[in-house]
Amino acid sequence: MKGVVFSEFIEMVEDKFSPEIADRIIDQADLPSGGAYTTVGTYDHAEILSLVGCLSNETSITPGDLVQAFGSYLFSRFHTAHPSFFTGMNSAFDFLGKVEDYIHVEVRKLYPDAELPSLECEAPDTNQLRMTYRSKRPFAALAEGLIRGCVAHFEEDIDIAVEDLSDGAGTAARFVLIRN
């Protein structure tokens, strides 16, 4: 998993909770990397799961909620770091519909070794978007957080229904977005 995800996670913990908690969960997680993350590096995704587990212990918030919250945070950071991806995007459906064919394509150009999830989209009508997430890694909750972050960014009134497709493993899920 790309280093940016880890460094953004640590920053979020430092920011939303405290530097002490960040230091503590790094210490507790006993990470192979020692928690010294650089955005240009690549790290085992298990480290983020360990960090989330430790943070959950520290804060009594479920890992699922934490990951989802991190997703929303990550989206806002994404907007700050890569505004060019938002040019001409007028709605959440606009943006989400282009993740697979535009953003992932660009990411692969920069990181040919990146293992990206697949995100199939279908729009039965103009007010509905069905997105199916599949990954080798259990980050359906992260995807949900990113989707919610996107909806929040465009300030739209959209209901999101989540259907787990992986028996709780978190590797596949369907998100049905309905615009009110």
Partner: peptide, 17 residues
């Protein structure tokens, strides 16, 4: 101590980078 450890991690991260 926390800052020192953080600095340590940053240093390691920088070297890795």
């Amino acid at each position: 101590e926390i800052l020192r450890r953080r600095l340590e991690r940053e240093k390691k991260a920088r070297q890795a980078a």
